[in-house]
Design a protein around this nucleic acid. Structure first.
Lengths: 215, 215
DNA sequence: ACCTGAACACCGTTCAAGT
DNA sequence: ACCTGAACACCGTTCAAGT
C-alpha cells in the first residue's frame, strides 16, 4: 500500500515550495522541452499552478528565476587574471559556457533588465580593470557591450535548431552549399566560432587600448 | 449613412487576404506592441482569426512572414563593393539597419531555420567573395557566423528595454554606475557599439586573411 | 503565510457550413 | 478556394476558503 500524501487544503506545516526549487525545476523543463508552462511547472513540483503565485510574480517571475539560475552559475574568478584582456576573455568564456550548458534558455532571456547581483559585481569589476588599463569610463560600456553582444549572439547560435539553413528548390547557391558542407558538426562548430570571435575581439581591443610594451 | 460591408458567410468573390497583407499587418503590430496575437492580427485585417489559416500555417506561419518582411528589406547591393571586407561590412550594416527599423521583431526571430531566398543568395555571394579573397570554404562559414552573431546580438541590444541595468539597493557597484552614467543615450549608443564592433571585426579579419599590400 | 479548487478571460487551432 | 461562426483544449491569473 503506497501512501500517497494527499494535500486537502490550507497552509502546510512546512512550505512545499521556495524560489530555489521553483527555479531549478523551471530550468530543467526548459532544458528538456525548450519552454515551460505554469501548469507543467506546478505538476513537476507536485503543487497546483496557483501555488506558484505565493513565491513568484507569475510567468515573468519564473523567467527572472531562470536568469538567476544562469547568473549564479557564472564564474567571476577569471576577473582576477593579471592581464585585463585575458580577465575579460575568461569571464565572458564562463558566461558563454553557462549558456552552452543551457542553450534553450537563451531565447527566453533576450529581453529584460539585468538586476542580478553577481552579474553587476562582475561588470563593476570589469569596468575597474578597464580603468586601470587606462580606458576611460565613457568607452568602458561600449567595449563591454560589443563583447557581450557577440556572446549573446553566439549563445543564440547554440540554441538554434540543428538545420539552420535550408536552401529551397529552384534556388541555387552552390558556393554556400559547399561552405555549409565543409563545416564541422554543430556543437563543435559553435564552440570554434565563439572561441575565434572572442579571442579576436579582445586581441583587437588590447591592441588598440594597451599595446603590449616592446620587449 | 456609412455603408458597412457585412460579410455574412461563404467565399468572397475576391480574396480578402493574401500573405503580403498579412505580413505587413503583423509587422505593424509587432512594431507597435512588441508582439502579436492571431485575434489582434485578424481584427487589424477585418477578418476572423480562422480566416488566417487559409493563407498561413498558424502563428508559426505568421512568424515566417515576419522573417520574409525583414529579409526583403535587406539590401544586397553592397556585396558588389570592390573590397571584400567592405562588401561584407556594407551588407551586414544593411542587415542590422533593417533590424534597427524593427527592433521588436528581433526576439521573435531568434530561433528558426533560414529559407529566405534573398538571404541565401546574399550568403552565397559572400562565400564567393571570400573564396576570391583566398579564404577556403571551411573557414568561410565560421567567419560569416562570427560576424552574424555579433549583428544579432547588437540587434537584440536595440530591442532591449530602456533601462537595461538596475543596480539593487545594498549592492554597490560605483565603477559600473559611473560607466553607465557616462554612456550616450540609448539609440545613439547602440549605433556606436555596432559600428565600432563591426568595423573592428572586419578590419581584423581583413588583416588576418588578406593583409593589405605594402604600398 | 501558503496551499487548494474553482473560476475567468484569452489564445491558438479545428471544422462544418456556406458561397 | 476562402470566409464565417461555433467549438475545444490549454494557458495565465485571480480569489475565496482553509489551515
Amino acid at each position: 500500500m503506497t501512501q500517497i500524501t494527499q494535500r486537502r487544503a490550507g497552509r502546510p506545516r512546512k512550505a512545499l515550495l521556495d524560489r530555489q526549487r521553483i527555479g531549478e525545476a523551471a530550468l530543467e523543463l526548459v532544458d528538456r522541452y525548450g519552454d515551460f508552462t505554469l501548469p507543467a511547472l506546478a505538476r513537476a513540483l507536485g503543487v497546483q499552478p496557483a501555488s506558484l503565485y505565493h513565491h513568484v510574480d507569475g510567468r515573468g517571475g519564473v523567467i527572472e528565476l531562470l536568469r538567476e539560475q544562469i547568473s549564479d552559475a557564472m564564474d567571476p574568478a577569471p576577473l582576477d587574471e593579471e592581464r585585463w584582456d585575458l580577465a575579460l576573455a575568461g569571464f565572458f568564456r564562463s558566461y558563454r559556457d553557462v549558456f552552452a550548458a543551457h542553450p534553450r534558455v537563451v531565447p527566453l532571456l533576450t529581453t529584460a533588465t539585468i538586476r542580478s547581483e553577481r552579474v553587476i559585481r562582475a561588470y563593476d569589476k570589469m569596468v575597474i580593470r578597464l580603468a586601470d588599463a587606462g580606458i576611460p569610463a565613457e568607452q568602458a560600456m561600449t567595449i563591454l557591450t560589443v563583447v557581450e553582444n557577440f556572446v549573446i549572439g553566439s549563445a543564440l547560435d547554440l540554441a538554434a535548431p540543428e538545420v539552420m539553413w535550408e536552401i529551397p528548390e529552384g534556388v541555387d547557391a552552390p558556393a554556400l552549399a559547399a561552405a555549409l558542407a565543409a563545416q564541422p558538426a554543430t556543437a563543435k562548430r559553435a564552440d570554434e566560432v565563439f572561441e575565434q570571435g572572442l579571442t579576436r575581439l579582445l586581441a583587437m581591443l588590447a591592441e588598440e587600448f594597451a599595446p603590449r610594451d616592446p620587449e
